[in-house]
């Protein structure tokens, strides 16, 4: 394992080059280039504002900044969903390389995680700019962004290595992942406030609900970027043991995902 990590370190430049490639290729041949990274969240904000604020009149229900609340959850959710979906197929889609060149295969899923992280950071920065522009006070926890980011990256990294390795042998994994992410979305407080769960479900159901690590991660993001007054300070269902559990789970996933990946990678070239 130590040897494998050293090998990954030796190939760090490849990882950065691949991330660079992913980022570059995404906006190649488009007129606005990487401005799209910034326009996308802006348009998202406008759409949410129109849909929820004007059409559904949620504003009247006292949710003045529903659009911001949504963005604070949707951006980190999309980060998880896109990087997971991209990396699940990453090894299989690079069959040409895997069969022809030797390099540590884990850079394939990790490069997608890297490029998604890049876009996510840009979008988070945009969110902060929007908040300031609309004169919404920043939370005192805003400086925790890098820490929560690290937690989410750890979580995604483990999962994407695990799934991308498995996908080489069972292509079903890719399809499963798509469906599961769809269901997972509704089991996570992204577009509805957590208060909805707190007020309408019995305590045992809430406990089960909070077993979802993404629920903790999204709540953390909402808390540190735009803590909707609607949620209230005590409303988040966030607890220290719950957070510690999520951190422990993410690290375990990372180790497990990495070990699984490196164990299986010797057989990739034959199977692809």
């Amino acid at each position: 394992m130590k040897e494998k990590l050293k090998r990954l370190f030796d190939y760090r430049e490849l990882l950065f080059n691949l991330i660079h490639k992913e980022v570059k290729v995404k906006y190649k041949n488009s007129f606005l280039g990487f401005v799209w990274s910034l326009i996308t969240p802006l348009m998202m904000l406008v759409v949410f504002y129109v849909a929820f604020g004007i059409i559904f009149k949620l504003r009247a229900m006292g949710m003045q900044f529903y659009a911001f609340f949504l963005m604070s959850g949707i951006l980190p959710w999309n980060f998880m969903a896109t990087s997971l979906l991209l990396s699940v197929g990453s090894v299989v889609n690079s069959s040409d390389l895997v069969k022809k060149v030797y390099f540590p295969r884990e850079v394939l899923p990790l490069s997608h995680l890297g490029s998604s992280s890049f876009h996510f950071i840009l979008q988070e920065l945009m969110l902060i700019v929007f908040l300031l522009a609309f004169r919404v006070p920043l939370t005192p926890w805003i400086f925790m962004v890098p820490v929560v980011m690290l937690l989410e990256v750890t979580f995604i990294a483990g999962l994407s290595m695990f799934l991308s390795a498995l996908n080489v042998f069972y292509r079903d994994v890719q399809h499963f992942t798509e469906i599961i992410i769809m269901a997972w979305f509704w089991m996570t407080p992204v577009i509805y406030p957590i208060a909805l769960i707190r007020d309408n479900f019995p305590a045992w159901a809430q406990r089960i609900y909070m077993l979802n690590p993404m629920a903790h991660i999204i709540l953390l993001w909402q808390r540190i970027t735009y803590n909707s007054p609607h949620n209230g300070t005590e409303a988040a269902l966030l607890s220290v043991p719950g957070l510690l559990g999520t951190i422990a789970l993410s690290i375990t996933l990372l180790v497990l995902g990495y070990v699984t990946f490196t164990r299986l990678e010797g057989r990739f070239a034959e199977f692809i």
């Binding site: 030796d10 190939y11 430049e13 490849l14 080059n17 691949l18 490639k21 570059k24 290729v25 190649k28 041949n29 040409d96 390389l97 022809k100 060149v101 030797y102 390099f103």
Partner: peptide, 20 residues
């Protein structure tokens, strides 16, 4: 491992790093 959307020069760097 050449990427069709990158230039020849960019691919040199990418390809060489793939080769380690």
């Amino acid at each position: 491992g050449f990427h069709p959307d990158l230039t020849g020069r960019e691919n040199i760097y990418l390809n060489a790093s793939i080769l380690g």
